[in-house]
Design a protein around this nucleic acid. Structure first.
Lengths: 364, 364
DNA sequence: GCACTATTTGATAGCGCTACCTTTGCTTTG
DNA sequence: CAAAGCAAAGGTAGCGCTATCAAATAGTGC
């Protein structure tokens, strides 16, 4: 009946001007259903047909209408992104990644604050009751065992973003914290440092332990000893970084480099050093971890480890959505543990120790 | 295959279990159409009927299905949130507010990076071509006249979030920058300071001028003079804050308080002060503006002005969506300029001018 | 070749809602 | 009292997509 590009017949209420699935079908000379199949990656479409459809999609610059899709498909997967500590930069990157993927895979994303240990349970219960089936948990929530158990008990699915260590029951997207710390340590050693201080992160987050191990093994691998006085506990906060830095720099044989388990503490180290008129990086190299905003705000900017948080978020959402979709059709799926590559961001806070540097060309 | 426990007649594909508009209509003994009218606040419904419907809605705890709504209504308002400088904390707050409101008012939100001055035009053109009708512009994009003109020219609508100054053609949601700076100045004076330094923000952002005026007028209102040596240009960056702080503190009669036009620069002031062994706030009070993450990360935490960014974002999106909706039905609407209240966040970086040590200790 | 599964494709019928038009039930008037 | 006017309610037909099932086509073994 409806022939073609006569855009409106009587009763036509179309307005968006966007091409529809039928437009594509017409161009590709097949039925809308087939186009739908191609879009949804079903594999019962012959290669030649699929290609024709793909070409038509490309040509029309078609993109499916979300509203129609979720109406018809009754799919509407709903996922909550829980957060506690609004470490803003982390959160916003996370958000960007999630948003992007959510709109791509047609997931309804709900962002909800979930105060650590407090009303946690209530929040989760409410969300599940309101139809949320999946949870995206960034640190430190992803390290909280009771929360994970609660979600599982209530029939929700969870995926962990950036946990220090993978859990057997939940999927996770993470970087190799241990390896990253190891690499950073090796990098510092490569600069010529031998006496290197380390500030441990919050002991309740599993990542802290991984980073510490990475550091220790990195030192061991270079046959460097780590006296007890060169390792100090911190809490991931700037304050704790100040205390730890003071302790480390008070040692009679002070370190020529300090590797802090996150950027906030590293920034604190820089501040303490400068108060003591130690030039960073000339007198003291400082390295952080995470590449949060503060790392590139302060001066000198921090050499640190960057996690591709946005990418991780995207993957996490994708995996979770996929698992939920297959769960709906009865299939159960095993937890996936995806490791993503990190980057060592070389900036201005590190260099060869002391005089050695001025003897060497100062080109970096 | 097992024929499932189909609780419905064949063809019934409902799954959500949520009540639909027809359920409400049945209960209220009227047609779905009437219910729709009530939901949409049309006024051609008799009071008695409307009440019956309202009761039914309440009873069933009905809420309309967004997907169906936007499919049928062909509404689907699409708004892009453009950003340049990923000042993460600002962005994430902005995002949270937008997300929340977007899902409430059924707006499709697209978040897009728009490099300052660079491919700006291309980004905007593409977005408009892809059906985006509205733009949410946070600083510094909201101060860029060419961008505003481009959007208007292409038929898009824009709303400015936190511009220094309202534009006659665009709606805006903002705080009173001038008044906030004035208040902060008055606050500092109230602490007992007389010699107060000021660091100006990036001269290309209109907010900078507003803040400066607020400061100057605040000083004038207290009959305090502002020697030229007490005001220094900055660029909103930490680096520029360091330079400005050094300049101000190098003056023979150095200030007892410094008010920086944003938190990054204020943090830099603290750092410089500490390097010179000036205690903050005992020897020098420091105040910032914006309440970004760094303000509460460093030690001492900064006293600063907090904008309720989330709330502003919510309002902005709401206003823009409303304008777009009415624009579609032919009505045109005047730009709205909404002023939101800010808060002076009192923290640890300010206090009465210290009497104790006036001389600079220069030991280690 | 023919019956008999696989594999692909197509037709149909909605998903829950609203635009648009028609009908109903009153008032207004001449 | 009929013609007309108007407000309130209902009916119909999709919005763009997918679930479901039926049809067509291709692939198999005897």
């Amino acid at each position: 009946m409806n022939k073609d590009k006569s855009p409106r017949k009587k009763g036509g209420r179309r307005q968006s001007g966007q091409p529809t699935i039928s437009d594509v079908a017409n161009l590709a000379q097949c039925s809308p259903m087939t186009v739908s199949r191609v879009i949804n990656g079903e594999d019962s479409v012959r290669k030649s047909t699929r290609d024709k459809v793909l070409v038509a999609i490309e040509q029309l610059n078609y993109s499916p209408n979300r509203a129609a899709r979720s109406l018809a498909g009754a799919s509407q997967i709903r996922i909550a992104l829980l957060y506690t500590n609004p470490s803003a930069s982390y959160l916003s990157e996370l958000l960007m990644g999630c948003l992007d993927e959510a709109s791509k895979s047609d997931v309804h994303l709900v962002v909800e604050r979930c105060a650590f240990g407090e009303d946690e349970e209530k929040v989760v219960r409410n969300l599940i009751k309101s139809g949320i089936g999946g949870f995206l948990l960034p640190p430190p929530l992803c390290d909280e065992q009771p929360l994970l158990e609660l979600i599982e008990e209530l029939g929700g699915k969870a995926i962990l973003v950036g946990p220090g260590k993978a859990q057997p029951h939940q999927s996770a997207v993470m970087i190799d914290e241990y390896q990253a710390a190891f690499d950073m340590t090796t990098h510092i050693i490569g600069l010529g440092h031998k006496r290197i201080g380390f500030i441990i992160g919050n002991p309740y987050q599993t990542a802290s332990g991984q980073r510490l191990s990475g550091f220790l093994d990195g030192m061991a691998a270079a046959n460097l000893s780590v006296p007890e006085s060169m390792v100090r506990q911190g809490l991931f906060t700037y304050r704790s970084g100040i205390d730890a830095a003071m302790y480390l720099l008070d040692q009679t044989d002070r370190p020529t480099a300090i590797f802090a388990s996150n950027d906030d503490m590293a920034a604190a180290v820089v501040s303490v050093a400068q108060r003591r008129h130690l030039d960073v990086p000339l007198d003291l190299s400082v390295c952080g971890f995470d590449d949060t905003t503060i790392a590139s705000t302060i001066w000198p900017e921090l050499t640190t480890i960057r996690q591709p948080i946005q990418e991780m978020a995207r993957h996490a959402l994708e995996i979770l959505a996929e698992q939920m979709r297959s769960a709906r059709t009865g299939k159960s799926s095993k937890p996936v543990h995806l490791k993503i590559d990190y980057t060592l961001m070389r900036r201005q806070s590190d260099g060869a120790p002391g005089l050695a540097r001025s003897a060497i060309r100062k080109d970096n």
